[in-house]
Design a protein around this nucleic acid. Structure first.
Lengths: 122, 122
DNA sequence: CGGTATCCGCTTCGATACTG
DNA sequence: CAGTATCGAAGCGGATACCG
């Protein structure tokens, strides 16, 4: 069983204000980051497919989110020199690892969301 | 191996815009929600302990976050009728389950954060 | 000690329009 | 098709002050 204390035993100051882990946490746990990553967990997707499958995301947020995830080395962008343009996004091996850790969490939420919102009546 | 498609096979429309799962995702993956939950994963904490241990959180955000987590049935609040007041917060069984799913993710971030930020030079 | 209320800047975000 | 630019609205979040 892992705990915050154990994480901090190996990495003192993990998840404190100025720690790099905090930056990564913010990228990865962001409103749209989770959904884009898990959608790419299904396989390679084009811009327009992501726009459609990540329900509710705006073009601006999709672009911003993808740029961050690419910069973090979680997502890979491939632009095919065709007309009209064709751009593919897919997970890197590191991104794949991350998504494999995120999906059980999403599955849990899927199983428990209703009970939780009943508890809070909203 | 779990996937988004499998989650949606059991629960059509999971994580679409109007779905309850989306609300829960926002609560749970929020900037401070993750950190408060994982800190409570260490054991019962008082308000002032949380304020100190969740590095960088303001009183406003701590109050707001705790109210949401209590309403969602993830955290339990116990107010002891002493002078001066003494209030304990602890995970509910459901909160415990959630944290157990979150910690491996945090551990992964702890192990990979540096490599990721090197990749992005920021 | 354990909060709540108010103010306010600053970022986030969505809509729209436009470009290669 | 795959984005970027711009703008206004909303709300996130911190500081401060105050209450039980």
């Amino acid at each position: 069983m892992v705990s915050l204390a154990e994480i901090r035993a190996e990495r003192p100051g993990a998840f404190t204000h100025a720690c790099p882990t905090r930056t990564v946490l913010d990228h990865v746990m962001s409103r749209w980051g989770v959904l884009v990553l898990c959608t790419l967990g299904e396989g390679t997707r084009r811009w327009s497919e992501l726009r459609r499958e990540v329900d509710g995301i705006s073009e601006k947020m999709l672009g911003q989110t993808l740029r961050i995830l690419v910069a973090d080395g979680l997502v890979e962008r491939e632009s095919l020199p065709t007309v009209p343009p064709h751009v593919d996004y897919r997970l890197t091996p590191r991104g794949r690892e991350l998504v494999d850790h995120m999906l059980p969490l999403l599955a849990w939420i899927g199983d428990n969301a209703d009970a939780m919102l009943v508890a809070s009546r909203g």
